[in-house]
Design a protein around this nucleic acid. Sequence first.
DNA 1: CTGAAAGCGCTAACAG
DNA 2: CTGTTAGCGCTTTCAG
Lengths: 329, 329
Amino acid sequence: MEKLTIKDIAKQSGFSVSTVSNVINGKGKCSLKTQKKIFGLMEKVGYKPNCAARTLASKKSNLIGILFPIENEIFQKNNYYQKIINSITSELSKKSYDLVIGNNIKELNILEWALKRDLEGIIIIGDLDASKEKDLKKINIPIVFIDNYKNNLYGVNYINSDDTIGGFNATEILAKNNCKNIAFVGSDDIEVHSRRYLGYQSALIESSLGEERLYLEQPSYQGGLILGEMISKTDIDGLCIASDIMAFGIISSLLKNGKKIPENIKIIGFDNTDSCEYTTPTLSSVDLNFSTKGIVAVQMIFEELEGKNFLRNQSIDLNIVLREIYTGG
Amino acid sequence: MEKLTIKDIAKQSGFSVSTVSNVINGKGKCSLKTQKKIFGLMEKVGYKPNCAARTLASKKSNLIGILFPIENEIFQKNNYYQKIINSITSELSKKSYDLVIGNNIKELNILEWALKRDLEGIIIIGDLDASKEKDLKKINIPIVFIDNYKNNLYGVNYINSDDTIGGFNATEILAKNNCKNIAFVGSDDIEVHSRRYLGYQSALIESSLGEERLYLEQPSYQGGLILGEMISKTDIDGLCIASDIMAFGIISSLLKNGKKIPENIKIIGFDNTDSCEYTTPTLSSVDLNFSTKGIVAVQMIFEELEGKNFLRNQSIDLNIVLREIYTGG
DNA sequence: CTGAAAGCGCTAACAG
DNA sequence: CTGTTAGCGCTTTCAG
C-alpha cells in the first residue's frame, strides 16, 4: 500500500505540481508531449489522485448517492436493486464516479448526508417520506426520482413509466386473443395501479368489450390467493393484473380450483419479475425497464452538472414480455 | 445549502476548534457539560463534519466498498443484492459508515480504488478474477469474501455456508418423507454444488438408501428443463437440487410429463429464491442466509479495524424453508 | 505553457 | 481539560 502523491509525480516527471494537476483535470493548455509524459508516468507507477483531497479542494467528490425504499415490500420483491445498481454503476464508471448507498432512509437526514459527503447528485427510488421533502429543497445538487409518482416537487427530475399505456396495451393484447370478459386486478393503496386501471378502461372501450370488472386487494401473494378464489367462480377469461406478485397468488388459486391457464384464462402481470420465467406456466408481464431508468438517471445528473440542465419529467417506454400464458400454451 | 465548519461551531460555542474536534471524536477528556453544549449546538444548527476533510486529515473515510460479481448470472437471479445491501447498510449505519459500490468489477483496479477512496474495508461477493488476487495482497485493510469458495488467500476473511450440511439435511428430510429413490441434481461448473453432493451422499448412506443418482447440467432453467424430461421417465421420487433455478425448469418438465408434485416426486432446492413462494406448487428450499452474512461481514471488518482481529473462515448456518412440495400438498 | 503559494475543513500533536 | 498550529493531498489563483 504505497502512498504516492501528486508531488511525487511532479518530482519524478520534472514538472510542477500545478502542471500535473492541470494535466489530470484537462485544465489550462499543456503540450501533448507534457500530457503524454505525465499520464505515462501516472500509469506506470499506478498513481491515482486521492479523492478526499480532491473533494476538499474542489468540492468534486465524484460521488452520487442512492436511496432505496427499504421498507417497501413491493420493491424488495422485484429484483429492483440489481437491475438499477448494475445500470447506474456501469454508467457512472464512464466518468469514474462511484455510487454510495444511503444508510437506512428512515433516519437519514438527506441534506446533512449530501453535505457531509459532498455528494454531486442523488437518485431516489420510489416514494419518499413527506417529512423529507423539505430537506430536498435546500439541497442544490441534481436530484432524480425514479418511480415516484407524486411528481409535484419543484426543482427535481422524475423518471417514470407510462403506466396508463401499460394497462392499455396489456388489456388490448388480451382482447386480441379472444378474451371477452377481461378483469383488472390491483390494489387501492398503490398509485400506479390506478393508472394502469385507467389504461385498462380505455382498452375495453377501444375493443368494444362489456363492462369493467375490478378486483382490489392487498398487493401481496396472499391478496392474490383470495382474489383467485373469487375469480375462479366467474366467467372471466382474461386478467390484467397490476402486480406479478398478486398474479402468482391468483394463478395458484385458479389452478387449485381446476381452471386451466391459459386455456380458460389468459393473464398478463406487471413488473416482469424473475419469477415470471419460473412458474408453470410462465407468466407474461409488463416490463418496467429498470435498467434504462438507471442509465437515464445518471445521464440527467451529468447533464445538470454540466449546466445543460432543464428539469424533466421523463417517461421510459415499457414493453410487454409475452410468455406461455399468452401464446396459448 | 449552508456550509458550516468546525470553526463556526468553535466560535459559536466559545470553545476552541480542537476541543470541538475532541468532543466530536470522543478523544481526550472533556467535561460532560462541554460535551452537551457542543453536541447541542451541532444538533441545533445542523452541523455535520465534512467527510473529505476528515478523511484527508485522519485517513478515516467511514467508507466500506463492496464488489458484486455482475457477470455472474446465478447471483443476478438470486435477489442477492437487496438482502446483502440492506443488511450491510443497516449494520454500517450504526457507526455511521457508508457503503460504496465498485464500478464494474471487470475493469476495476481494486487496489487503486481502495487507495483513492481511502476505503476502510472491502466486501467481495462471489468469485474474483484470479488476476485480481494479487492486488488484494497489497491492500492492508480488512477484506471479507462472502460466498467465495476458493478460500485459499492469505490475510482475508471468508464467510460461507456449510453446503455439505445443507445437502445432507435436504436429503435426510426427503428420506424421512418416504422417498426411496432420491437423486441429486447440480452442475459440474459450480464448486458449491459438489459440496452439496457430498452431503447428499452421506445422507443416503445414513438412511441406508440405495445407489446414488447424479444428474448434471448447465445451472440454468434450460438445464432443468432437459433434466426434467429425463427424470420423468425414471422411478425417482425425491430430488435434492443444488439450484432453485434448475429446480424450476425440472418442475416444469415434470408437470408437463404428467408427474404430480409432491405426490410422485418431492423436491428441495437451494437458494430459497423469492420465486419459491410463487410457483405452484411452492418450492421448499435451503436458505443461504444472505442477510446474516452481510451483518457478519460488517462486524468482522469493524473488529479488525478495532485491532481485535483474527482472520476467520466463518460458516453461517443455513436453514431449510419447507413449503408445499415437502408437506405433501 | 509553467511554478509558487494559499487554502479546502479537519485531526493530532504539543503546550498550557 | 483547553488552545495553537502544522499538515493531510489536492486545486486554484496569480505571476512569470
